[in-house]
Nucleic acid binder design. Structure first.
Lengths: 216, 216
DNA sequence: TCCAAAGCCGAATAATCATTCATATACTGC
DNA sequence: GCAGTATATGAATGATTATTCGGCTTTGGA
């Protein structure tokens, strides 16, 4: 598996004029749309340029190659996801485990639902990327945030917190992904929310150890 | 999204002589190996033929096109998975829910672990396939088996059994997939087994309704 | 031993793709 | 309005790809 050196994945130039920022935005959006309608293995520079309403040459002014474009798109959205998820974690810091669970599940789902196209598109691009750095890095960040949040619960403690966080996140992701790949119809999403709450609550209940109430 | 008509996905000829069966076997195995080493987007007819030790022409004697080859490989392994999973379900029929849970989780994991290369390879080929029929069909079969098995527990009942089965299977799949994509080292697999047992037990505990003991 | 069927080969073909670059247009400050 | 920079163009290039087909080799049986 040949991996492209990260250095070369950086965009070629930073847009200064307003129109070029618009161009890059159009290219990003077009990438998502091509992924949705044609699939990852038909994500070609020609198709993206066409859908974005620009020429291929223009694309190559901002990205040295296709890998760089894909990297940028994935990076943008994964970073956004991590940021919003971490923000939600801070919001529920130190709350009882029941609140934490409900807050985390709801936040996880909300972010995905707020950008349904992006969510579905990212599932399709994974195999095209020459590096796993982004996915692994994101997984690590989410796990860290989750560990901290669960550890902040005043009413319980957990053994193997990293393992529990890992399992919780990947399980949520598995069910969510399945729902989105099935079309993510509103009733299905509603069901997903309900079942994920039960899943996580049940898992954390069974894994939690009551904390002896040591007051200050 | 152009989908290939299922009819054309059928193999071109059925091997009669022993050596041709060996050829097809080599092609199947080569497909898995190319997926693992090169990734789905570099799964080419040339590469598969080369790794299988046959010529491209030979491949086209058994499969009318690349889609048919991929379809055959995926179909073979998904069918195997469903068969083994259903067999495990029958084995735990009518047992108490605690046994059912443990049996189902263990079977799910065992099948994946018994064919680690196949497990990882199938994650990579999904986007290349022009049809979702196989994935959706498999999901449906597994869900049906799971619904029946859970429904057979004498000590509990569930509401929304299809939703619960769906959630259970996709959650297990999500965590399992993550572990395999991280390399599936032995200690990781051990952790996976432990955590999946807790996850499913917790979820089913919380979703179950005690069945009033109506003795005949 | 011999032959028809089964199996195999791989160069040739036509399509598609990523990437380049010489040229043209649009914008910004003056 | 002008000069210089930023941005956009798209035909051309070379690589890679899926698929074909005419000819070759092996096999199983008579």
């Amino acid at each position: 598996m040949k991996t492209t050196h990260p250095e070369t994945l950086r965009p070629r130039k930073t847009p200064t004029q307003a129109r070029s920022a618009a161009t890059v935005g159009a290219i990003f959006e077009a990438t998502i749309q091509v992924l949705l309608t044609d699939g990852g293995h038909r994500l070609t520079t020609t198709r993206v340029a066409e859908r974005a309403g620009v020429s291929v040459g223009t694309m190559y002014q901002y990205f040295p190659h296709k890998q760089a474009l894909m990297y940028a798109v994935v990076h943008q959205h994964l970073t956004m996801f991590v940021d919003e998820f971490e923000a939600a974690c801070f919001r529920h810091w130190n709350e009882p485990i029941a609140n934490i669970t409900q807050g985390m599940v709801t936040a996880f789902l909300d972010i995905k639902i707020r950008h349904p196209d992006v969510t579905r598109a990212l599932y399709k691009i994974a195999d095209e990327l020459d590096t796993d750095e982004l996915r692994f890095g994101t997984a690590k960040s989410l796990q860290t945030a989750c560990v901290s949040l669960l550890g902040s619960a005043p009413d319980v403690t957990f053994e193997n917190l990293p393992d529990i966080a890992f399992t919780l996140l990947t399980a949520m992701n598995g069910t969510t992904r399945a729902v989105f790949e099935f079309g993510a119809e509103p009733e299905m999403v509603k069901m997903l929310h309900i079942q994920l709450l039960a899943l996580c609550r049940g898992y954390l209940d069974i894994s939690a150890v009551q904390r002896s109430n040591v007051s200050h």
